[in-house]
Computed example of a mutant assay.
Amino acid sequence: MTQKYVAKIVPLNADGIGTSAHGEATFTQDADQLAIHIEMFDTPANTQHWEHFHGFPEGQAAQIATMAQDANHDGFVDLPETEAVSGTTMVPFDSAPQAMNIPNDTYPVSDAQGHFAYDITVPLAALQAKFKEAFGTDDLELDKRVIYIHGVPQSLTLPDTVAGEVGTYDAHVTLPIATGKIEKAN
């Protein structure tokens, strides 16, 4: 049986980054594979954009962050500030989601107009096995997850209070620019 999920992706941190990134993601689960399509508009141009779904391993439903999550009032909702409502980073939408290797350089890069489209079909069993290894369950529970699009140019001046370092990647890479709640499609 085929099950489809959709997320309408809305801007986050638009005032601070100077653009209102938006788009849509669809996830189509069919037998032994998961087809993922993400199309984004008005992202920071010529920039690599990390993208993931976030959630709570315990199973509660994640919600998208809004500017209300700007706990330190620096004008930006950074990655750590999303965790209270959105949970942790779970699955990357990079060249191999099933590997669940978050920090890498195989994410989409936007064009000069800030557009990119991402399409991949993932072997579901491999993704579920890696997900179970990381989170103790093989149920992706997509309708309890949220998607985040991240990334601003290194040239953008961010306050020192903006956090989100992951390995050797700084807050420019991890700053959320858009988010959406994943929901079951009719």
Rank of each mutant, 00 (worst) to 15 (best):
Q63F: 10
S155M: 00
D138A: 11
L175G: 03
G87V: 11
G114R: 04
N101Q: 13
V109I: 15
S20M: 08
V91E: 03
P123T: 14
V122Y: 08
I147E: 00
Q29T: 08
L140M: 10
Q154Y: 08
A68N: 12
P176E: 00
L156P: 00
N72V: 06
T157F: 04
Y169D: 14
G16S: 06
Q69S: 08
Q3A: 08
F56L: 15
Y118H: 15
N104I: 14
L158P: 02
Q98M: 11
P80D: 09
T89Y: 06
H22Y: 11
D94S: 15
A14M: 02
F116W: 05
T106C: 14
H150Q: 15
G59N: 07
T28G: 03
A96H: 09
A68I: 06
H172Q: 08
G75C: 09
A7M: 04
A126Q: 13
E51C: 15
Q98I: 08
K4C: 05
V85N: 07
T161R: 06
D139L: 13
T82Q: 07
P123C: 10
A96I: 10
T168S: 12
M67A: 14
Q3H: 09
T2H: 12
I102S: 06
Q63N: 12
L142G: 03
T47W: 01
L124F: 07
H49R: 04
A99M: 08
G55W: 01
G23H: 01
D70V: 08
Q33F: 06
A129W: 07
Q60W: 11
V146G: 02
F41C: 07
H73P: 02
H52C: 14
D105G: 07
N13T: 10
S110E: 06
A84R: 10
D139F: 04
F116M: 02
K132C: 06
T28C: 07
T47F: 02
G151L: 04
I36F: 06
D139S: 15
A7N: 00
K181A: 15
K4Q: 13
L156F: 04
P57R: 15
N104R: 14
D94C: 10
A7Q: 01
A112G: 14
Y5N: 07
A171M: 09
Y107T: 06
W50Q: 07
V173W: 13
F76N: 03
A117P: 02
A178K: 01
Y118G: 03
G75H: 05
D119N: 15
Q98K: 09
P92E: 08
I120A: 15
E39L: 03
T19Q: 03
S95I: 08
K184H: 09
Y169I: 08
L142K: 01
E133V: 04
L12C: 02
A126S: 12
F53K: 04
L127S: 08
P176F: 03
N104F: 12
P57G: 13
G23C: 05
K181Y: 05
E51A: 15
N72P: 05
D119M: 03
P80W: 14
P97L: 09
Q113V: 11
A96K: 14
V109H: 13
Q98P: 02
A84Y: 06
F76L: 12
F27P: 00
H52P: 02
I17H: 01
A71M: 10
D94H: 11
P44I: 00
T89A: 14
Y169R: 13
A62S: 14
Q98G: 06
E24S: 05
T121E: 10
T89P: 13
W50K: 00
K8C: 05
E141V: 05
K8F: 10
V146L: 01
